[in-house]
Design a protein around this nucleic acid. Sequence first.
DNA 1: TTGTAAGCGTTATCAT
DNA 2: ATGATAACGCTTACAA
Lengths: 335, 335
Amino acid sequence: MAKVSMRDVASRAGVSVGTVSHVVNGSSKVSEATMLKVNDAIEELGFVRNAAARQLRSGRSSSLGLVVLDASNPFFASVAHGALEACDVAGLSLLLGDSGTDEARESKYLDLFAEQRVNGLLVTPSGADLSKLESIASKGTPVMLVDRAPGDFALSSVTVDNVAGGRMALDHLIAGGSSAPIFVGGPLSLPQVADRYAGARDRAREAGIELPLFESSEMTILAGRDVGERIVSLPEAQRPDAVFCANDLLAVGVMQAVIMFTELRIPDDLAIIGYDDIDYALSTIVPLTSVRQPAGLLGRTAVETLLAENESSATAHCDQMFTPELVIRESTRPV
Amino acid sequence: MAKVSMRDVASRAGVSVGTVSHVVNGSSKVSEATMLKVNDAIEELGFVRNAAARQLRSGRSSSLGLVVLDASNPFFASVAHGALEACDVAGLSLLLGDSGTDEARESKYLDLFAEQRVNGLLVTPSGADLSKLESIASKGTPVMLVDRAPGDFALSSVTVDNVAGGRMALDHLIAGGSSAPIFVGGPLSLPQVADRYAGARDRAREAGIELPLFESSEMTILAGRDVGERIVSLPEAQRPDAVFCANDLLAVGVMQAVIMFTELRIPDDLAIIGYDDIDYALSTIVPLTSVRQPAGLLGRTAVETLLAENESSATAHCDQMFTPELVIRESTRPV
DNA sequence: TTGTAAGCGTTATCAT
DNA sequence: ATGATAACGCTTACAA
């Protein structure tokens, strides 16, 4: 009962396996009558196509691999959600991997997905060295960088302009009167973080001010709380008047520390701005101003572009960059 | 360069394909010398096992399918994260599906995964009729219900006790002095919601009070805000003194409405309690009291149990139920 | 310890 | 329009 093959269907319907294949795939003209017979047999026997066999024979697979930095991070959850939507319309399966920002685990997933002969790879790399991905791509598996620019590597990408986003954040802070902002984020080895910092620092310098870096080990609420505690324990003279966090989770953590351990008012004594604009940003203790990234769109576009490149078998690499959008709420001073 | 098979490796190493297979899988004793030769050949040729071929031949697949209600919901993101961890140690791939609480889409994923001959299915069903899953299970593919009890269906499950959770919530509200609580959640066709409501209502009745139902169409922040607006526009005499929300997202939405449109103080005028205890519950405008569910553990346990059942080829079904835990914060009155 | 060979369930190329 | 048949790359007895 478990294993019904095309052969079984064929003999049941009194036709050849080739004909069954044609019916199943609509690949060739089959008379109305035989089609009916075959479909009946399929129904009665409960036949289900074997993806492994068809992939083996045809050489084409029907799945994509997605490797994110942290599946439980709402930003990446949204990316996955968007990717899934696009896979859905293309009839593809999505294999999910979670590297935990660990290059070794990322590499393990890449190997695993290579064995599955995925049709394409969507990955947010953990490290700076993209040569493994490059080599995979050059061997014929399309690779799309998600939320990460290729740098010198010959890879396609879908990103959001992090430099512009960082600039936006500082622009807003400065317009609100900040003269002593700081940046919270890390590790700085993540280009997303480095770029946001770079954009922000440039804008700060244009205003003639520095942007001290408070590096965090991760991009989580807890890590944010740790940095927050460092900030609030600073001597008053050194205390910033605004904090730009590399993501909303950090911002939430900083906000928690500020509220739990100080009497500082947000935004009057300390403005806070985050990044991503996750759904909860609206609902934080003080509603969070944030730089919005179109996470779902990122995932969807990554898949669509991958598929399009696949189709046209284009050799040229394509970089798509979205522009983030500032969403102003109460955690920063109005301009 | 793209396609290197065992045959290529075999001829390169001057051995037979069988031997290569043994080296690759460690399935049989191979002399040190040949092993070295083979591994060299693999390295030089860049050979990668073909999962489709090995699955076809061996009959075993190396992937699991997970179908959740909403991949971008942090609860399910955490479930996926946990499932991924367990898959990782078992060397399995995870196929992700997102039904959007739509039975047709769920069914599509089930079919897709059936074609892939997944080793097992983890699913949070969208509808009441689990017969399709039951039939899949009876055909030999292990199925684990995640966050959903099997009811009369012959299926294994990993759940969190929703009735107990609902009771806990009301227990706490009543202990805090509430005499006019309401329940917000929906659709009620979701057993998770119905059970939480049932547990809560029972507890309310024991205290001699009713628990009016404010049904929501979804379990999102936006839906919560809608219900919240309904609540705050109630004539004062009918206004509840406490709101139990079927998940934290709804609670956050209700809280937003209350704060935006009224002067009501939380928890003094209106207590709010949520469900799930997502990371952000700690960081809401008023930190949210919530009934915590071990989401990651749920996913991990689901995979582990599935694998264990698979191994022992047990026919008996197994229901594992975790007990949720009340996490008290400022959105409710202390007892 | 190693080689041989028969499939696994398809698809695709020929014929018919 | 349909049938026969050879692969696809691998695992696994069994033979040597």
